[in-house]
């Protein structure tokens, strides 16, 4: 199984769950699977071209997928994926 960490702002879509376990061969697969179990989640993570949105980082273990092979980044048993909003603040 692969563990996916869901950030607080997206937990309303996962019934409050902060961690979801999936099986899948790539980050792209993972996004599709998450979207099947939690419809609408893909739209929160990716823009209309399917690219990861400008305010989201997806890490496989400790590396940002932008420096791996993006959504083609392979996943294997035991990997941990973290979906993290880029740092923000308000006045």
């Amino acid at each position: 199984m692969i563990k996916v960490r869901i950030p607080t702002p997206l937990r309303p879509m996962t019934g409050g769950k902060g961690e979801i376990e999936i099986t899948g061969n790539s980050v792209g697969d993972m996004i599709e699977q998450l979207n099947t179990s939690h419809p609408g989640l893909k739209d929160r993570l990716c823009d209309e071209h399917g690219e990861v949105r400008r305010f989201i980082n997806i890490y496989v273990n400790e590396e940002d997928i932008r420096f791996l092979t993006g959504k083609d980044t392979p996943l294997k048993e035991g990997d941990e994926v973290s979906i993290i909003p880029a740092i923000a603040g308000g006045a």
């Binding site: 305010f55 980082n57 940002d64 909003p85 880029a86 740092i87 603040g89």
Partner: peptide, 16 residues
């Protein structure tokens, strides 16, 4: 004017 949101790609590049 009252808030900020960092660009995730630039943030990742800086971290790298």
């Amino acid at each position: 004017d009252i808030a900020f949101q960092m660009d995730a790609q630039e943030m990742a590049l800086a971290q790298k």
